[in-house]
Design a protein around this nucleic acid. Structure first.
Lengths: 156, 156
DNA sequence: CACAAACAGGACTAAAACAGTACCGTATCT
DNA sequence: AGATACGGTACTGTTTTAGTCCTGTTTGTG
């Protein structure tokens, strides 16, 4: 276990697709080019827009684009956008849930060490690292290309 | 999400209890002192013994003890013992599952970077770090005490 | 101004995973 | 022989997840 859900998995596929373009992309467009079913893509994009990771534009010629420079987006942010705060158990500060034994639980706060460790490691993996082409490209070049595409998309 | 299941959560409680003793402890005994229901404790201990993290002895005066020096046990091992290999998605080497699109999937192998990062961070959190008293004790002293208890339990 | 393209939000259902329990078998000590 | 304790597995109700669909709102275009 310790799995992310499928939506998050698909989200990465779709986001990588979005990274490759230099304009707003509609949900239908992304569904087609990524192979993920439209309703699912739609659900993912809505959620990502809600958290600010993506920007959306309605109406004809509308679609989705990154809400900020994509080179700065970490996997931790993507996962949290779709699944909420990273918390491996309920017994953790900020998890939202509160176990009924908080005050007597001997584990209280101790899983936090685990959460912090995981959170930090996810901060260090960037979304652009998930691009297949990232393996073969010079990181500098990759960042530059991605930044140019983002600028073009924002301008249009 | 990205949660461990409750069994794993309970397991840490029970294991910490076991860390505090210097002899074999029966499932019933651990259930009582940890407050976790017996059938559940039993299930956890069985599984941990199966993977070798714990040793078991049957019959009167039987019970469970650590299979090896507990100071060397990491949270990664505990989690893997109860939940199988750490793999945040199905699309990952060693996850056991194989998605039907392996050969065409553009993400193939890329979540691995995430898995490796998480796995490494879990390797660095030790089981003994989950002990509440670990906060107040000198790490050297903690290791010594734990080692002595383990030796005593193995000898008896 | 009407229509079509696209996003926004929420409701609903089927399937899968989990949690918790119970039962029966086997080993060991006294 | 009998009591204690682990070993394996099967079962069931509940919760979560996945996936879909429907209705409303915004915006560009002829």
């Amino acid at each position: 276990m310790l799995k992310v859900n499928k939506l998050t998995d698909y989200a990465v596929v779709v986001l990588c697709d979005l990274l490759r373009g230099d304009r707003l992309r509609s949900a239908a467009d992304l569904a087609q080019s990524s192979g993920v079913p439209l309703p699912t893509v739609s659900k993912i994009l809505k959620q990502l827009a809600r958290t600010g990771l993506l920007q959306s534009a309605r109406g004809v010629n509308g679609g989705y684009g990154f809400g900020r420079p994509p080179a700065g987006i970490s996997m931790a942010e993507v996962i949290e956008a779709l699944e909420g705060p990273i918390a491996v158990t309920g017994c953790v500060e900020d998890s939202g849930e509160m176990c009924e034994f908080v005050h007597q639980c001997p584990m209280n706060g101790h899983w936090n060490a685990v959460n912090v460790a995981i959170r930090r490691s996810l901060d260090e993996v960037r979304l652009v690292d998930m691009l297949p082409e990232a393996r073969f490209m010079d990181p500098e070049d990759l960042n530059r290309v991605i930044a140019e595409r983002h600028a073009a998309a924002m301008q249009a």
